[in-house]
């Protein structure tokens, strides 16, 4: 010591600063997986509760339309009721063709939801597969899938749909499946991009190297370690895309290249309502509102999921 001042030696009383066992395990709390943790956060969020209730309701309507209306949607149309005001048993009034608006909205839910669900499932299968392979293996595989995706990405959805639906095979079989096909062909690159990014982020993690040195094959480590950890952004995007695809279906039907007129869908109804928009705007308003609420619910759910699954908020 070179200082000429004496330094006092302070010791805290041991009773006030007891030593804890180094590195003790907490055993009192319930174990928490990513999903349990996310669920704990979600169930307290109003955004999640509202959107989940809405979506549950929409699904029930789509599966059991008979629970909500006794009026048959298409063969009960009487021209006498054209643009008629709401009456007993017909709470939203009638369309130009004299059909019950309420009944048409209830029965139209099924087609819209089916297009959304099947498009998202197919996009998930194709987009996640391509994106995961591209991100995990990199190199020329990545280049190939990235360029392929770019080609489809560059096509505007309406233009692409116009061209695709004019193909003879598609024109003859118009229905839910052709719309799904069009949406999947034009929609998968978005999912592939998100998956690729998420996979690249995880693939170099130590636990992947650890799994490989345990003897897990490359593909095995992709499936069992990389993908589950890359799932969060994929789920969020899938939820939001569901809403987006339902809107896209309505857009295509509105343009006359989506569902055939015989299938009841909100897009067809909105399209048909154009002619009477001045005399009876309600005809347009109701299916459009149903569409907005459905899409909003899915996008809100996606938002809530994104917050709950954010890994940065998961540190204790």
């Amino acid at each position: 010591m070179k200082t000429n001042r004496t330094l006092e030696h302070f010791v805290a009383p041991v009773e006030e600063t007891p030593l804890l066992a180094t590195d003790a395990v907490k055993v009192d709390e319930a174990p928490l997986s990513l999903w349990a943790d996310a669920w704990r956060k979600l169930r307290r969020r109003p955004l999640f509760i509202i959107s989940a209730v809405m979506i549950a309701l929409i699904i029930v309507v789509a599966v059991f339309p008979g629970l909500f209306t006794q009026v048959a949607p298409d063969n009960g149309c009487e021209l006498a009721n054209s643009n008629g005001a709401p009456t007993e048993g017909h709470p939203l009034g009638f369309t130009f063709q004299g059909c019950d608006i309420y009944s048409r909205i209830i029965h139209g839910t099924q087609a819209s939801l089916m297009v959304g669900v099947f498009s998202v499932i197919s996009v998930l299968i194709i987009g996640v597969t391509f994106g995961a392979l591209a991100g995990f293996f990199g190199g020329w595989v990545d280049t190939f899938f990235a360029r392929l995706g770019d080609i489809f990405f560059a096509l505007p959805i309406v233009l692409g749909a116009l061209v695709l639906t004019q193909l003879p095979l598609m024109r003859e079989n118009r229905g839910v499946w052709t719309v799904v096909l069009v949406l999947v062909v034009l929609g998968w690159p978005q999912m592939a991009r998100i998956t690729r990014g998420a996979v690249i982020e995880v693939r170099n993690a130590d636990f992947v190297t650890a799994a490989r040195s345990l003897g897990v094959s490359r593909l095995g480590s992709l499936v069992s370690h990389v993908l589950p950890n890359a799932l969060a952004p994929i789920i969020v995007l899938a939820t939001m895309e569901l809403g987006v695809f339902i809107v896209a279906e309505a857009t295509l039907s509105f343009l006359g290249i989506g569902m055939p007129g015989s299938v009841m869908s909100w897009g067809n109804d909105i399209s048909a309502a154009q002619s009477s928009i001045r005399t009876n705007p309600a005809v347009l308003l109701y299916p459009a509102t149903a569409l907005s609420i459905t899409v909003l619910s899915f996008i809100m759910l996606g938002d809530a999921l994104r917050d709950a699954l954010d890994p940065k908020s998961r540190q204790r």
């Binding site: 130590d206 636990f207 190297t209 650890a210 040195s213 003897g215 950890n229």
Partner: peptide
């Protein structure tokens, strides 16, 4: 190599990164 992996095992630096969080 698969058999070799049984006999040689690693422990990595980062205890936050070497275990799969899922």
């Amino acid at each position: 190599i698969f058999a070799f992996r049984r006999r040689v095992q690693p422990i990595f630096q980062d205890p936050y990164g070497s275990l799969d969080p899922m």
